[in-house]
Design a protein around this nucleic acid. Structure first.
Length: 419
DNA sequence: TCTGGGGTCCTAGGACCC
DNA sequence: TCTGGGGTCCTAGGACCC
């Protein structure tokens, strides 16, 4: 049996944990730079706030309906996520963290368990210990457990947060209930193609020809079909480390000068290096991209990316910053108003399997230095030690006007209890 | 007149997820 | 004025190899 555990309206729920006065009130959480709505409490959903809505278009509406607005606080959400899944993992033998607010669990034998009761108990315990409401879906395959979870979330009174698909009748009933666009793995493009041939729910999807599915949706679609039919096809994965690491940002305003953009690209490369060192990997290649504002139809558009192969694998901030600058020089063109850039590092190898070369200029000498930099930045705050090519005085900042305290990760911001 | 067959690797782009 | 960021997997086609 698989179980999918998903936190309800996760970011909004995190904001509520230390602000019980917000229970029952509408909350939205905004993306970086306070750009778009990326999370909503149920109350905000009911009021009609759409996922991805640009915040500036809704300011009046937020005000009028007393919607509490937050900038995203990833330190808080990351920490709360760890708390939740550390606790849930005690109930199952196998866990696959799927995202910040979801994880799959698997167990071979649950014949002596009443899953409905087991799940409800977990939901209750997690809420009691962390303050985060979760939902659980049990089913014999991964995609069906996603669907079971959706049902649990949609009918909280009836399900009390847990739904189990454990026989054919329930499976078919659930599939018929699920609109095709809500099925895990079926996005906008496939929805359109499927609706064009009359497939409007998940059940009909499981009845169409394999050959059509394979041709139109590739092997991925076919696997999904089998999985929904109750044949376990999508397996548990043990994710040890990432295959790509990206740091990308929109700028607070448009930039035209090479030096301004270089400053940011260097910082992106440095952040990528830090993330690489955290997972003990070195990158063999690096990509830099640069974009104008594609929302602004009146401006000349430009978008370019470049991948460069590194002469040796590295996770040194100094080396990666240097290569990222070289890459940027190749794609930067004067005369455009740039809005976004990013650095992606790729082709990793574990740090302990690097072959150092006698002849090439490998960077083993940076290892100690980077270690020292990481230690200092951990103790004294992010980016306290920077490269000279990063900005020094005027540090550019994201717009984060509604940031909540880091209740669980900064000692100065911990809650005070008056008794 | 007539021009094989079987691979690998890389890249760009598409589709999806949260 | 203002529109996020970070991932995964798959396929087709080109270049190259023997």
């Amino acid at each position: 049996m698989f179980a999918l555990v998903d936190c309800n309206n996760f970011y909004a729920s995190c904001e509520r944990v230390f602000r019980p006065d917000l229970n029952g009130k509408p909350i939205v959480v905004l993306s970086n730079n306070d750009g778009c709505v990326i999370a909503r409490s149920n109350e905000a959903k009911t009021l009609g706030v759409k996922m991805g809505a640009p915040a500036y278009q809704f300011e009046e509406m937020f005000e009028k309906n007393n919607i509490e607005v937050f900038s995203s606080n990833y330190a808080l959400y990351g920490d709360m996520s760890n708390r939740v899944f550390n606790l849930v993992s005690e109930y199952f033998p196998m866990m696959e963290i799927y995202s910040i607010d979801e994880a799959f669990f698997y167990f071979d034998d649950c014949s002596n368990l009443n899953l409905q009761e087991y799940g409800r108990n977990i939901v209750k315990q997690i809420y009691k210990c962390t303050g985060i409401p979760i939902s659980i879906g049990f089913a014999p395959t991964k995609s069906l457990s996603k669907l079971a979870n959706r049902i649990a979330k949609k009918f909280p009174q009836r399900t009390k947060g847990t739904y189990v698909i454990d026989d054919q009748q329930k499976r078919i009933k659930a599939l018929k209930w699920a609109k095709i666009e809500d099925v895990w793995g079926i996005g906008r493009k496939h929805t359109k193609r499927l609706i064009d041939i009359g497939v409007t729910n998940a059940f009909v999807f499981t009845t169409i020809e394999d050959s059509w599915v394979k041709k139109t949706m590739s092997i991925v679609g076919l696997r999904l079909k089998k999985d929904l039919m109750g044949i376990p096809t999508i397996e548990m994965e043990d994710i040890k480390s990432k295959k790509n690491i990206a740091t990308t940002r929109s700028f607070e305003s448009t930039l035209t000068e090479f030096s301004d953009i270089r400053e940011r690209v260097v910082t992106f490369a440095v952040i990528c290096s830090e993330k690489l060192r955290k997972q003990s990997s070195c990158a063999n290649s690096l990509m830099v991209f640069l974009l104008t504002n594609f929302h602004n139809k009146n401006e000349k558009q430009y978008s370019k990316s470049i991948v460069i192969k590194l002469p040796f694998p590295t996770n040194s901030s100094i080396e990666l910053a240097k290569f990222a600058t070289e890459a940027l020089e190749k794609i930067f063109v004067n005369g455009y108003k740039y809005k976004k850039a990013g650095v992606v590092v790729m082709d990793f190898i574990p740090i302990d399997s690097i072959q150092y070369s006698i002849f090439e200029n490998s960077d083993s000498r940076h290892l100690k230095l980077m270690e020292a930099v990481d230690t200092l930045n951990t103790s004294f705050g992010k980016q306290k030690i920077r490269l000279a090519s990063q900005s020094t005085g005027r540090v550019w900042k994201m717009k984060q006007e509604k940031l909540s305290p880091c209740y669980t990760t900064k000692i100065e911001e911990i809650i005070t209890i008056k008794s």
